[in-house]
Nucleic acid binder design. Structure first.
Lengths: 109, 109
DNA sequence: TTAGTTCATTGCAATATTACAATTAATAAT
DNA sequence: ATTATTAATTGTAATATTGCAATGAACTAA
């Protein structure tokens, strides 16, 4: 089917899955790391930086933007991308809350 | 193509993406949360708990096990699942390292 | 042995994702 | 106006993912 049955899960579970899914491709991981690394914004050199074709990068950027993790502003002919820090922080809180569950219980197996 | 070009990314980037991908489905998020919630191990009641068909749950468990995040031991006719705490901790460190990047730089847009 | 229980595997259909060539849209430079 | 530059969009092919019915494998109980 290829279609996740989201209606049987909580909003929180679906939200975690949505964030995780966007990190589930190394190109998007790489894009985000690059946006964090550079001090200023990146203006379209992500294509050279990463090595995928321009439409492919554009598509990945679109997904990141759709989830609110990055912003993109037109700057002449190029577009300036950067991390949306506010949204990144709230995403981080949600993901860390999920990852940081108590591991102190006994293992059974 | 549906095939990620992993060879152009670092091992770390691919590793982050692999972990993230497994969290990219609410059923797997739900399974993991359930395994954390109960004190003892779960012995196969995940199908009732979650509401997907048995083969579907089995498939999700297989993916979690393949990545090393859970263990599954046969116990008579049933199978006992629990979090692999050692692996969970190292995965957590990798993911938090990715999520916790410095957000103090100026936004550009 | 036979029947029941539990879970993995197989096979398949439906949908999603990834990648890119070709094109378009928008602006900038001459 | 024409040309160049940059990035989004469209269309398409290849592969991946999700879900489940049917089946199989392994153990238990009678």
């Amino acid at each position: 089917m290829g279609l996740a049955k989201t209606e049987m899960f909580t909003d929180k579970q679906n939200e975690i899955a949505l964030f995780a899914k966007v990190f589930g491709h190394p190109a998007r991981v790489s894009i985000l790391q690059h946006l964090f690394k550079i001090d200023s914004c990146v203006c379209g050199d992500l294509v050279n930086e990463i090595g995928l074709a321009q439409p492919t990068i554009s598509q990945h950027l679109k997904e990141l933007k759709h989830l609110g993790l990055i912003k993109g502003n037109v700057e002449g002919t190029s577009v300036c991308y950067c991390i949306n820090k506010e949204n990144w922080s709230s995403m981080k809180a949600i993901m860390i809350d999920f990852l940081d569950q108590d591991v102190s219980n006994k293992e059974c197996c």
